[in-house]
Amino acid sequence: MNLVQLLVDSLALGSQYSLVALGIGLIFGVMRMINFAQGDLITFGAYMLVVPTVSDVAPPMIAALPTPLLIAATIAVVALAALLTERLAFRSVRRKGADGPTLLITSFAIGYFIQSVILFLNTGRPKSVSILPELSQQIVFAGVRVALVDLVTIIASLGLLLTVGLFLNRTRGGIALRAAAEDFLMARLIGVKADRVIAVAFLVSGALAGAVTLMFVAKTGVLDFRMGVPLAIAGFVATVIGGMGSLTGAVLGGFALGLASTLLQSLLPPDLRPARDAFLYGLVILVLLVRPQGLFVFGPGRERV
């Protein structure tokens, strides 16, 4: 495989992973909770592209809108859904002073709930939907033919990562978010509003999920009620190998995972390729063993008490 091709493939996959990981990392920062529902929010966004129906062919809903509106509507719908999960479920559990495992299971339950509702309305048969057809062509880039959708995914992701970075570093809301992620109690004592900062984290993370929906569906064109699960898993793994609680680590972890996945795909002998994920997750466990504090965390790996 050509080096440029490999680079484009791994960056495209890695940028999707890193957006998911950033969404998970933002919520982990303020709530110390891994949000399982992140993947199912991606699925939710994808199914909002079409009219819910039990028949095999689904007429387009959001997918029928012109491109700018389609992008805006998908991101807005998923961001709102994320906000809703916080308002309706996480907030009540959190107010009761729930411990880590309870929050983790709550997010697992919300994810399962979203899946079940989608399954109920759309049946489990995969459906196809076509969005952003102008991206489905191949172009010649640096002497190699690459899919345009991959290039656009990479550029859009870098843009999004930059935007979120600016938001976190340059705006009042973003700084409050980082303060809360650093020390939630202390941030509250100096006037950061707990509910608001968590809501902001969910909103941003939902918007990122919406963006991933668009990239994923534009590339594959297939809807499945569990399509978000592998993405979410990749996101968790990326946050963990990047170092829990470090947003930069989560993003780098996402790219590292994309690279490892693409490399395994092209380097493994063909008869082992179907089992690629086994090697990938084996590699992940190996990384965790060598650097349990994360690949991209420097300094003491243990939390202070």
Binding site: F28, R32, I34, G100, L104, I233, F236, V237, T239, V240, M244, Y281, V284, I285, L288, P292
Partner: peptide, 9 residues
């Protein structure tokens, strides 16, 4: 949490 994710892997 890292152990939970490890177990999921």
């Amino acid at each position: 949490v890292a152990a939970s994710i490890g177990l999921l892997s």
